[in-house]
Design a protein around this nucleic acid. Structure first.
Lengths: 218, 218
DNA sequence: ATTGAATTTCTTGTATACAAGATCATTGAC
DNA sequence: GTCAATGATCTTGTATACAAGAAATTCAAT
């Protein structure tokens, strides 16, 4: 394995958390990781720091850093926050989006629709991501764009699950079309409200999922 | 000086940036800082990493980390984002805030008003901060609360300046009172809109300031 | 057998040594 | 005198050594 730099190591670790190789509560042992990545503890420690700052892991002094996946409550809060940020992006994009970007959104939506009819969850996921990222970008506010991307990325492993809900993809599609119409009309309020509930429903689906698991456990 | 831990060092460095001891573009020399804080380079490097991740500094590989204050454009984007986040907080707080918190907000506003009549800028600043932080908290969403606090803190050195604008404090006061009324009425839209423009105007004031400086320079 | 204390071992946190790249200065050519 | 090239110096980045605290194990006493 070629030698990775600390931020590449951090990305790799992040990926390992997302893919589920590291589970909630796992301790990230410096020595083991150093051996695994073929470097000394120093760059590993820097990478771990990045994970801690980004909220994916927690550091207990003199005890190590542990993977910390958000629990149901925190997850709901994160989805709610994402919903508000998406709404803000829609609000700003409604008055700033370019014609070409609007056309691009409609093309993306067409590919989304194709994925829905084909039952292609991965394809839908990819085009859905693109749809939202275009809106972030069309806020014309790269700071907000980055904040949106950051939280979007953090939630992506959880968002993916709930696409498999029956009928969710087609409902999601309908919402996308409302968003594009609102953006084309420059209707900031409609764009914001539609995007907010579009994302908020994901949190609610998750809540239902967790609740049903609780029920089943009793 | 007692020995500080890396995150305490990071806080101290952040403070030094805010107080202006470190200026935009300054290189944060590891050896100098190590001597200054009486530790080795290792904890200094960890602290610097935190600054970089939080966006206060930029790291150029093999060249060092440099203080990176936001320029006019980025600052405007940050204020705009803050405005949207405050609006979101107002929206959520409007339906969740407790009676006691509402009473607390009115007390805070009274102290704000006292500071305005006394021309006490520092006092106003402090109570104004408290006002906003209560609203963040009353969203009942600690994740959003933390995001709001983070950005608020990042903008605080710039927000402080524009309070000295003539008539700004009293106008700001009036906006606070509208916010409290909206929250008491559970009027989510009014709370959100008022808070948004309350914060957005700060960015605009800054824009004016920068523009006038540009003019003067020519 | 179980509990509790003491010791050993292991891990993190810090300091220092070493490697590699960047900056700066000196020197030589034009 | 200016510019370029080469070498010295300094800084960052990584590895390793050492210090200090936490966990685990052992062993004795009940």
């Amino acid at each position: 394995m070629e030698k990775l730099r600390p931020n590449e190591i951090a990305d790799a670790l992040e990926e390992l958390v997302f893919t589920g190789e590291f589970r909630d509560g796992d301790r990230l042992d410096e020595i083991t990781l150093a051996a695994r990545f073929g470097v000394s503890r120093t760059p590993i420690r820097e990478a771990l720091q990045r994970l801690v700052v980004s909220g994916l892991a927690e550091q207990l002094p003199r005890r190590g850093v542990f993977i910390r996946q958000p629990g149901p409550v925190e997850l709901m809060q994160m989805f709610e926050t994402m919903a508000e940020i998406e709404a803000a992006c829609g609000r700003l994009a409604a008055v700033r989006i370019s014609e070409s970007a609007l056309d691009g959104l409609e093309e993306t939506n067409a590919r989304c629709q194709a994925a829905v009819t084909a039952g292609d969850v991965d394809g839908y996921y990819r085009e859905n991501q693109r749809f939202h990222q275009v809106i972030y970008h069309e806020t014309g506010n790269s700071f907000l764009e980055n904040e949106a991307l950051r939280l979007n990325r953090r939630l992506s492993p959880f968002r993916r699950v709930q696409l498999r809900w029956r009928g969710r993809m087609s409902q999601s599609m309908a919402e996308h079309e409302t968003v594009v119409r609102a953006l084309r009309d420059g209707d900031a309020v409609l764009a914001a409200d539609t995007l907010r509930s579009h994302v908020a429903v994901q949190g609610e689906k998750f809540h239902q999922l967790v609740s049903s698991l609780r029920m089943a456990a009793q």
